[in-house]
Simulated scan of single mutants.
Amino acid sequence: MKFGMRTPSIKKSVSARTTGRAKRAVKSAINPAYGKKGTGLITNPSKSVKNSVYHKTTKSVRSLFK
Rank of each mutant, 00 (worst) to 15 (best):
A29M: 05
K27Y: 01
R21Q: 05
T43E: 06
T58W: 11
G4N: 08
K36I: 04
A33E: 13
K59P: 02
F3W: 01
R62I: 06
G4P: 03
K23N: 08
G38H: 11
N51I: 02
T58E: 02
S13D: 15
F65H: 06
T7Q: 11
S9P: 09
K66A: 12
S60R: 06
R6D: 05
V14E: 06
S63K: 08
R6T: 13
T57N: 05
A22W: 10
V49H: 05
T19E: 04
K66E: 10
R62S: 15
K23W: 02
R6K: 15
Y54E: 13
F3D: 06
K56F: 03
N44L: 03
T58Y: 02
M5A: 10
N51F: 00
S46N: 12
K12Q: 13
T39Q: 15
T43Y: 08
K11F: 15
K11C: 07
K2L: 12
V61R: 10
I30P: 06
S28Q: 11
P32F: 06
T19K: 13
F3M: 04
S48D: 04
P32D: 09
N31K: 10
R62F: 15
V14M: 11
A16K: 06
K27D: 08
S48A: 14
S63C: 02
F65R: 15
R17L: 01
G35H: 07
G38V: 07
K56S: 11
F3Q: 04
Y34I: 13
H55Y: 04
T19F: 11
R62D: 13
K66M: 08
G38M: 05
V61Q: 12
K37A: 13
H55I: 00
G4R: 13
K37Q: 13
A22Y: 10
S63I: 08
P32Q: 04
T19C: 08
I10L: 15
S63F: 06
A16F: 11
S13N: 15
I30D: 05
A29T: 00
S13F: 14
M5W: 12
K50N: 02
S13G: 07
L64H: 07
R21A: 04
T18D: 01
V14D: 09
V61L: 15
P8R: 13
